[in-house]
């Protein structure tokens, strides 16, 4: 049976927040019995965009990651719910029953992703219901997908095997895979958020003026072994990306024609811009 999944491409999210606004538009002030009680106007972020800045001025980037209820296949919240207040549908969607869940505040803590929200006024836990009321009416995508200008958020209905194959082939990741919750929300290019880089700009003095050095060879080593190699661009810039955060000490070796070799070391916590390196 085909089931609903969400694929989010971190590289294409512009932080426009149209998905978060579409969710507010859909759920604030609207009651969809059997699916979701109204979302409070403030305080809940059923879709929430995380962000991470990497690097330092002027070599940096920012990743934006829309997050939401993962509609996990092995959902901790379902296990924690009393009276079957949370259930998984055959199409993969996990719904919190507003009636049965009343008063079950502990469910907020049950979600390892922080995506069950407590509605103080109605005394119910709430989460983004995958716009199931719309899908059941024949919609083929969620509000967030519909509003997304870049296609960074894609609703897909696939057999589980097909989805698994796609995820494998395209290198999709899920959040906190180690928990074994089996989310149905997949991420493409999550490395933009989860990994870090070492970069810098190589320059040299020539005829009294400092200029960028293009084509310098830069090698990145760890524990004496070369990890990666690159050459500088016309601005003298180089960048080694997709390195693990907190992965320790690296050395950066720069060689350019007619110049003395330069070796720098970098302790990698988060991303580092080594700045100008004059040969």
């Amino acid at each position: 049976m085909k089931k609903w999944n969400m694929i989010i491409d971190v590289a294409e999210c512009t932080n426009c927040n149209l998905c978060t606004l579409a969710a507010m538009d859909e759920y604030v002030g609207n009651d969809f019995p059997g699916y979701a009680a109204p979302m409070p106007k403030h305080g809940h972020k059923w879709i929430n965009i995380l962000q991470k800045e990497r690097g330092q001025v002027p070599m940096m980037d920012i990743a934006y990651v829309p997050t939401m209820c993962n509609h996990c296949d092995n959902a901790p919240c379902i296990k924690a719910a009393k009276n079957g207040a949370i259930a998984k549908r055959d199409d993969g969607i996990v719904l919190i029953d507003p009636e049965k869940a009343k008063g079950q505040k502990h469910l907020v803590e049950a979600c390892p992703y922080g995506h069950i929200w407590w509605n103080e006024e109605l005394q119910i836990p709430q989460a983004w219901p995958f716009d199931a009321h719309l899908l059941d009416q024949g919609w083929d995508k969620t509000r967030g997908d519909q509003s997304c200008p870049t296609g960074a958020m894609k609703t897909v209905k696939l057999e589980d095997e097909e989805m698994a194959r796609l995820a494998r082939e395209q290198g999709f990741e899920v959040m906190k895979a180690e928990l074994g919750a089996k989310p149905r929300v997949y991420y493409k290019n999550l490395w933009r958020y989860s990994t870090c880089f070492i970069g810098g700009s190589v320059s040299a003095k020539l005829d009294g003026a400092v200029d960028c050095v293009e084509g310098a060879s830069v090698r990145l080593s760890k524990d004496g072994k070369m990890v990666a190699e690159t050459t500088t661009d016309n601005y003298g810039d180089f960048k080694f990306d997709k390195l693990a955060e907190g992965s320790g000490r690296y050395s950066v070796e720069i060689t350019a024609k007619g110049r003395a070799k330069k070796v720098l070391t970098a302790e990698l916590g988060a991303s580092i811009n080594l700045g100008e390196i004059q040969l």
Binding site: S201, S203, A209, V210, D211, C212, E214, N234, Y235, G236, E276
Partner: peptide, 21 residues
């Protein structure tokens, strides 16, 4: 480019590289 660096804070070398490209 060196004159502008004092004003803009952008390294002269980068401006030269940009102008050339």
């Amino acid at each position: 480019p060196e004159w502008q660096e004092a004003e803009t804070g952008v390294p002269a070398k980068d401006v030269r590289a940009l102008a050339r490209e």
